[in-house]
Structures are given as structure tokens and as C-alpha cells.
Amino acid sequence: MIQFIQNLGKSTRTSFNKLGRATYFLFEIISGTLGILLRPRLLVNQLYSVGVLSFLIITISGLFVGMVLGLQGYYTLSDFGAEETLGVMVAASLVRELGPVVSALLFAGRAGSALTAEIGLMKATEQLSGMEMMAVDPIKRILTPRFLAGLISMPLLAGLFSAVGIVGGQIIGSGLLGVDQGIYWSQMQASIDFHDDIINGIIKSVVFGFVTSWIALFEGYDAIPTSEGVSRATTRTVVNSAFSILGLDFILTALMFGDN
């Protein structure tokens, strides 16, 4: 029993320690922002590997999610004779929830894990250490541009996901199932509020981009510099990102849509 309490105390302490280091690390990353804005080339390179390379998986998934919503929504709504509101249902689910959340989860799997593996390998092969010895701060030179790229890419990807999904829902709804196209769009426009829905959705995706990039970079930077350590860190990135995204989504949803 004493052993158990001891272990509990020890693991609590290590997790607080890790959180502390991660916070310090975050400040260091953010403090490099100005330097990177003066060298946009570094940011563009990372936008490519973080954003562009996630483009395909995000848009294709968005299309399918929208199509599934179109199908499921239609069958459920037609029971109540409310097929006209299919557009509202598809758009609201995508813009408020599925767009930010699913694209963030995909982003964590595609870009987050790649970031962790890349940084972890750079650590394992002494590239980060070598950079430090060349008087170049690896956090500012390597990690900050990746962090900013994640922060910028995430809302763009989430927006694409939702947009493609809404079109996908329309293809199924009015192309296949015969909901009037005009009604699909006009009902949607009548119910989806720019501020309450679109802006809040974008805020969510910025928060998710922030957290996912932070976790991915920290896990990579903090990885034990061996192949096993890096592969464990990659797994941790995906798991921790998924937990954080879903947990934060709950909190943000409660804050944003709670008092309607």
C-alpha cells in the first residue's frame, strides 16, 4: 500500500515536471516568433511539409464525412418530414464540431506524428546538439517555424474540411436523394450564424492547431534519443493530441454554445 502511494506520488511529480518543462519550452518557442517572421522562407518551407502534405488527407476525409452526414441526416430527417433542414444539419455539424475536431485528429496523425519523429530523429542524430554548438538556437531555428506553420495550417485545413464536407453533403442530398438545392443552401444560410458558428469553429481549430503542434514538438524534443524513444514519443503525440483535442473541444463547446 505504501509502495502504491509512493509510486503515485512519484508519477504525479514526474507529470508535473513534464508539464513544467513543456510550458517553459512553449515560451521559448513563442519567443522565437519575431525572428522567424523576419525570415519567412523558413516558415514557407514548413507550411509545405506541415500544411500542404496534410491537404489531401484532409480534403478527401472531409468529402467523405460530408457525404456520410448527407446520407445519415437524410434518413433521420425524412422520418420527420424535415429533409429541407438537411443543409442546416450537415453545415452545423461540420462547422461547429466535425470540421475542427476531425481535421485536428487527422492533422495530429499526419503532421503531428511526422513532426515528433523528425525532431526526435534530429535529436537522436545529434543535429540539435550540433546546431547548439554552432551557436544556433535549435528551438528558434527549427521548432518555432514548425509551430507557426501548424498554427496557420490548422484553421485553413479545418475550413477546407468543412467546405468540402458541405459540398459533399449537397452532392448526396440534392444529387442523389432529391433535396432541393436551393432549399439546402437557403435553409443553411438562414440558420448558420457567421459569428456564433463560423468564427467559433475557427477559434476551435486555432486552439487545436496550437495544442497539437505544441505536443508534437515537445514530445519530439523531449524524446529519449534512441529509435525506441522516438517511436514511443510518436505514439504519445498521437494519443495525447487526441485526448487534448477532444477534452478541449468539450470545454470550448460548453463555453461557446452553452448560453444560447
Binding site: 514557407v44 518551407n45 507550411l47 509545405y48 500544411g51 500542404v52 491537404f55 453545415a91 462547422v95 496557420i152 495550417s153 484553421p155 485553413l156 485545413l157 475550413g159 477546407l160 474540411f161 468543412s162 467546405a163 468540402v164 458541405i166 443552401w185 443553411m188 444560410q189 438562414a190 440558420s191 448558420i192 450564424d193 457567421f194 458558428d197 463560423i198 469553429g201 475557427i202
Partner: peptide, 26 residues
């Protein structure tokens, strides 16, 4: 690469604009 990144950012912004103009009541 610059061009591709440019296209990516432009399409992302287009997606958000689409949401704002076509989907919402803006």
C-alpha cells in the same frame, strides 16, 4: 514549392470564405 504553398494557403482561405459567404448568414 512556393507556388504550392501559395496555392494551399489560397485554397484554405477560399474554404473559409466559402463558409463565411455561402454557408453562413454573413
Amino acid at each position: 514549392q512556393d507556388t504550392i504553398v501559395g496555392l494551399f494557403v489560397a485554397s484554405g482561405i477560399a474554404g473559409l470564405l466559402f463558409l463565411a459567404m455561402q454557408v453562413s448568414n454573413l
